[in-house]
Design a protein around this nucleic acid. Structure first.
Length: 540
DNA sequence: CATTCATGTCCAAAAGGCCG
DNA sequence: CGGCCTTTTGGACATGAATG
């Protein structure tokens, strides 16, 4: 054996690569060589020897080098456009009547492939070293919290179906983690320990990281799962410089949903009744959240009313989700109705281009009033019951309603040109709404259910706070006293809310900082701003 | 300029096919 | 079934754009 000497064998584990001469490497290989992973010698205009022998067309691969493409940031968008939207559009031509076709269908839950998908998801998380699994007890507890306190406001998953899949270990880890992110946000402080995390924020971060990794890796072929998960991820917002905030994830949810055609009626698409209902619920949840988010952070709405013809959400759509009373059942439907009006308030009053006419304004006013009148009796606010949580849904609805009222009526500074500012502003109505929000918050605070508040409580409170500060600057002694107390209640509410929603904390801090600065400049001497920088979680 | 990272090439080992 | 040849595939390393 002339060659197989010992030294040869010893060499093997190290590097037995004889410097590949960079010279004979070709710039771009042809398709065939590329797929076969063999050396290619194609020159411009001349087929490579491999293809010549095989007598096939020698075409160079479509290289991505030299193109401006940053995969990380826009990954989600890339997915939405290339993977979902493109096939949708290309098939659209021969698809006139039916709006939804099989290509958009997700996997059947009973699919054989489901196990592999779950395994693939676990593998990815393990590789990234971020796999965090809950004990069966903890999982059950968190799911319970989710379905008891969140699901009815945003019924984006089918409870029965999901729980069954959990038992069979076939649920999408993507959806599960997004769901746990929400559960960790609103669960009882005592439950956090069950998850094995140090704090609520830690738990939130853990579940978010897992969901995001799974989403980015694009491991779940079920497109509806992706929509659902991304929607739930929009409840994540870590701080003011987090680019991937609620608005970002919502935008993706909207985009993915629209590319599936969720914004269109499914009536003519021969879809199963159950699926049709689920789609309708998901779509309305996205819409509700899109308008409320837009109204609170002042960015444009993703969804245009004109593009949608999904039937209004009805309580029958919520069917077979086990309901305790009428209140929960009606909540989402009422929010859906409100979101339509809310959306118009935002787009007509706060559009970049002013176009609303007095009659449109009057229409909005009467629509809001009528909305309140038609709210079913079970959802009319009659206080919050601390033990059972009864009344919380009514409270949330009332908050959202008043949030809309404030947005519609809040007066603008009288300094500027008065024409434009007086057109919309109606201070007494805005004040009344702010006071009502404050009263409701007071009830919630004394019921110790703050952590269960929906996220729109924050902008509602914050807007009320602004109104109180407004009257603080302009009222007489008694008015000031009242306004001061109300402002304090709002701040207390916002402070408590930050336990669940960190956004609340930093918005409040920003606000307090600004007021501090104004005081120093002696614009007006304001209320004592309590120091909320450090919160011990108990005694406020 | 150095570093980082996704993308691309192609070596070499494994797997597959065929024949006597 | 062993030897020889072809095809497939894992993965080391090169490359170049983006970024520090």
């Amino acid at each position: 054996m002339p060659d197989g000497s010992i030294s040869d064998v010893m060499e093997k584990p190290k590097s037995r690569r004889n410097r590949p001469r960079a010279e004979d490497r070709i710039r771009i290989a042809c398709r065939r060589c590329n797929s076969k992973k063999v050396k290619c010698d194609a020159a411009p205009g001349v087929p490579c020897s491999g293809c010549q022998i095989a007598q096939v067309d020698c075409t160079l691969i479509d290289s991505k080098r030299g193109r401006t493409f940053y995969a990380g940031d826009s990954f989600s968008l890339t997915y939405a456009i290339h993977d979902v939207l493109a096939p949708f559009l290309s098939e659209r031509l021969n698809y006139q009547k039916r709006l939804h076709f099989p290509i958009a269908d997700g996997f059947d839950p009973s699919d054989i492939g489901r196990e592999n998908i779950v395994n693939g998801q676990v593998t990815l998380l393990r590789e990234r070293n971020i796999l965090h699994r809950l004990s069966p007890d903890a999982l059950e507890k968190m799911l319970d919290v989710y379905f008891r306190w969140f699901h009815l406001a945003f019924p984006v998953v089918s409870q029965q179906n999901f729980l069954q899949k959990c038992l069979r270990n076939q649920m999408s880890l993507l959806v599960l983690n997004a769901l746990l992110l929400v559960a960790a946000t609103i669960c009882d402080p005592a439950d956090i320990a069950l998850t094995g995390c140090e704090s609520r924020q830690h738990a939130r971060a853990v579940f978010y990281a897992q969901a995001k990794a799974l989403y980015d890796a694009d491991l779940d072929p079920d497109k509806v799962n992706n929509v659902t998960a991304v929607f739930l991820m929009s409840f994540w917002w870590s701080g003011s410089n987090d680019e991937k905030d609620s608005w970002h994830w919502l935008g993706i949810a909207v985009s993915l949903a629209q590319s599936l055609g969720m914004h269109r009626s499914t009536a003519k698409s021969h879809m199963s009744d159950e699926k049709s209902k689920l789609w309708r619920r998901i779509w309305w949840c996205i819409r509700i959240r899109d308008t409320l988010t837009s109204g609170s952070i002042g960015r444009p709405q993703h969804i245009s009313h004109m593009d949608c013809d999904v039937e209004m959400l009805e309580s029958s759509d919520m069917a077979n989700e086990n309901l305790l009373g009428g209140e929960e059942e009606m909540y989402a439907c009422q929010m859906a109705r409100l979101s339509i009006i809310f959306s118009r308030v935002v787009s007509s009053r706060y559009a970049a281009v002013e176009s609303a006419s007095p009659s449109q304004k009057a229409q909005l006013e009467s629509d809001l009033e009528n909305f309140r009148l038609q709210v079913p009796a079970v959802l009319q606010y009659k206080g919050v019951h601390g033990e059972t949580g009864r009344g919380l849904w009514s409270a949330m609805l009332l908050m959202a309603y008043n949030f809309g009222v404030i947005l519609l009526y809040r007066p603008t500074s009288a300094r500027g040109d008065t024409n434009a500012s007086n057109f919309w502003g109606d201070r007494p109505k805005a004040m009344a709404a702010a006071n009502e929000v404050t009263r409701v918050m007071e009830d919630i605070l004394s019921s110790s259910l703050v952590r269960l508040c929906q996220i729109h409580t924050i902008p509602a409170l914050f807007n009320s706070l602004s109104m109180h500060v407004f009257s603080l600057c302009t009222s007489g002694t008694i008015g000031r006293e009242l306004a001061e107390n109300r402002a304090r209640t709002c701040m207390l509410g916002l402070t408590c809310l930050q336990e669940s929603w960190p956004v609340s904390g930093w918005i409040l801090k920003l606000f307090v900082d600004i007021i501090e600065r104004l005081r120093q400049v002696n614009f007006f001497d304001l209320l004592e701003v309590p120091n909320y920088d450090t919160i011990d979680g108990r005694s406020y």
